[in-house]
Design a protein around this nucleic acid. Sequence first.
DNA 1: TAGATTGTTAATCGATTAACAATC
DNA 2: TAGATTGTTAATCGATTAACAATC
Lengths: 221, 221
Amino acid sequence: MAAQRSANQSQKASEAAVGRLCLYRALLGGLEREGVENVYSHQLAALAGGAPSRVRRDLMAVGYDGSPARGYVVSDLLRSIGRFLDAPAQEGVALVGVGNLGRALMAFFAGRRPNLSIIAAFDTDPEKTGRVIHGCRCYSMDALAEVVEENGIRAAILSVPAAEAQGVADRLIRAGVRGLLNFAPVRLRVPAGVFVENMDMAVSLEKVAYFARQGEAEEES
Amino acid sequence: MAAQRSANQSQKASEAAVGRLCLYRALLGGLEREGVENVYSHQLAALAGGAPSRVRRDLMAVGYDGSPARGYVVSDLLRSIGRFLDAPAQEGVALVGVGNLGRALMAFFAGRRPNLSIIAAFDTDPEKTGRVIHGCRCYSMDALAEVVEENGIRAAILSVPAAEAQGVADRLIRAGVRGLLNFAPVRLRVPAGVFVENMDMAVSLEKVAYFARQGEAEEES
DNA sequence: TAGATTGTTAATCGATTAACAATC
DNA sequence: TAGATTGTTAATCGATTAACAATC
């Protein structure tokens, strides 16, 4: 999935670096559950797939220093990454499009991260509005601006058909949303300051098929 | 979503370039439906987000030459990209894990690309096996190796819980699969020659939330 | 101490973009 | 012709990695 970024933005951390920090957090969470207390850059690099020096560089960015003797203390490092990545308070996410995929996403994210969870879903279908699905209230599209503004929602998931994606994105942005996770197979046009991460499943499957064929061709040669 | 690649592979086209070609194809398909016959590199670049010279470089790779007078002929270019990206014959894809997400993916991919479609689904739940879901037969996990081998399946989608992903990946690879689209939030260990594209939705949502906050901070400053 | 790892800088690598002669 | 675009090379840019003194 490729991500779009509007011009004229100078982020402190690059998009790739933020992605890696999220991955490190997930890996460190696993280590913590296994009872591992310390970790060295080369161990984390092996798990994440990369060079130890890149891990050290990434971790420097979050402001937590390891020591040559003990490497990094897992619990402290997790806290530091959290301070860097997470909002100070709880953050609500909106989801638009309660179809098959939308409901699957609601199930996937339910209870995963209390500080970053879907707190409102929207759909045009009156059959779906008013219901509570996977612990999340489903509203009519008419309520979008109001609910987004009242809850200070800044991030949204788009699981609507391709034809509707741009219109819905425009409405979300007008209501204050500044980050979109887009599952619709279209490139959204967004103003500067709005971040779009495209989860283009069709493109990804084509890539997998292409490289699967390449891997096979190499084996035969 | 980050992708893993096993070492010692010298692909002709980089992963990013293949992703862009898939995107160009989608955009060109849209143009063709609108009745557009010719397109210039700067037009495609504007739609895809990038520089015209990169588009020209990418298109050179597929072996179709444009002309200074007419740019690229949309229909011919689509054919050339197809020849480059697609398999000569129809390709079947397997999907493992017929949960909420798995069924949503089956619905999403159903009828989208006749030459690259999910032709077999697998699940441990006996309630699901034997059924036909979105036009696709659902098999028991016991039948995995047999069905994959008989149909020459080389690409698979993993929509199983994180804990089961590695085991399922191992089985798929043993049966001949060389490309995986992985929705489970884990990094898979795969041998050289096997391509993994990770659709890490949890990581992506965290990225969106992070950059949404950054975009907002910039507006205030 | 000896050995391994750290933070950090310098070197490397690859990808992106700018530039330009050739072309229509 | 004049003007815009092409294929293609050279220059630029950024990210990754290698290296090393400092540290435990």
